[in-house]
Design a protein around this nucleic acid. Structure first.
Lengths: 147, 147
DNA sequence: TGCTTATTGAAAATGATTTTCATTTTCTAT
DNA sequence: ATAGAAAATGAAAATCATTTTCAATAAGCA
């Protein structure tokens, strides 16, 4: 099945004068099948199930390419490890991170976006990207703690 | 001069059954005299001017203590390096980071804070901390670029 | 098919942070 | 004051994610 995502990645690869390889295809497919925010390590583990010989560096390099192609976005939470999330079909959003169970809850906020625009204008700042992360305890964990 | 900050740190140290040392005093004073967001490396450089024998690990360990005492807050921007900022006399705030000149501009926004509260309530989330960072090009750099 | 050039995988390098450990220092209890 | 127990220090080594190196391999154009 060739999805939009595959098309986008292939176009990117060709446009940059790079080559398509089995490894890249496997890593892309694996990433596309994830939902969560996955680290290179996570992906390396998954990818090795299909191809034992694949190297960590290849996964790392490919995730960089996938990010450059626009299909992934890199996110870093408090543990300092880079994770990747999908950009397709997921509009821009922010994150709640639960410090108890590590769950990541995505949310949108027009109010935050509007305020950002207002602030940028007020400060003469040209916005390229932003990260809004709220750390705390999620609903579920709060409920459990009360028990 | 013993400031509130010194008092807070000493209380913290004693309360934790730790000991006051020359190095800790020097590192705290040095940190208190900074304005910017300083890394362990930055502080190590400053502190060495006063005490050539002091070790990097001591600066690192002490900054962790100062953070635990509540006097500093750790902030990480896109370069992945931990930096420390003051918590005293600086209400909570957010950051613009200029990708061109690396300037960090702090800003406040009641609108963002209010929205955060609303969201937390809506999601049943208990907020402990948050980071809102906007990356882009600052006013000054935009002006220069236009030249 | 052959050839040029990119890619791969393994291992080593990097760089910030953290730990180890022998020595030194603090500070409590005498 | 001072001895002794415990914490802190500094230098060096260890960690750990990430990045680079490099020789061998593979892709894809001519």
């Amino acid at each position: 099945m060739v999805t939009d995502a595959h098309q986008i990645f292939n176009d990117f690869i060709k446009g940059a004068g790079l080559r398509g390889t089995e490894q890249r295809a496997l890593i892309l497919d694996t990433f596309l099948n994830t939902d969560e925010h996955v680290s290179v390590d996570d992906l390396f583990g998954m990818v090795k199930l299909e191809n034992k010989k694949i190297g960590y560096a290849t996964v790392h390099r490919t995730m960089k390419l996938i990010t450059e192609s626009g299909l992934a976005r890199e996110v870093v939470f408090n543990d300092g490890i880079a994770r990747f999330e999908h950009t397709l079909d997921t509009g821009h959003h922010h994150h709640f991170v639960c410090k108890s169970c590590d769950a990541v809850i995505e949310f949108n906020s027009d109010a935050v976006d509007a305020e950002e625009k207002r602030l940028a204008k007020a400060y003469g700042f040209e916005v390229q990207s932003h990260h809004f992360k709220i750390y705390g305890i999620c609903k579920e964990c709060r409920r459990k703690k009360r028990t």
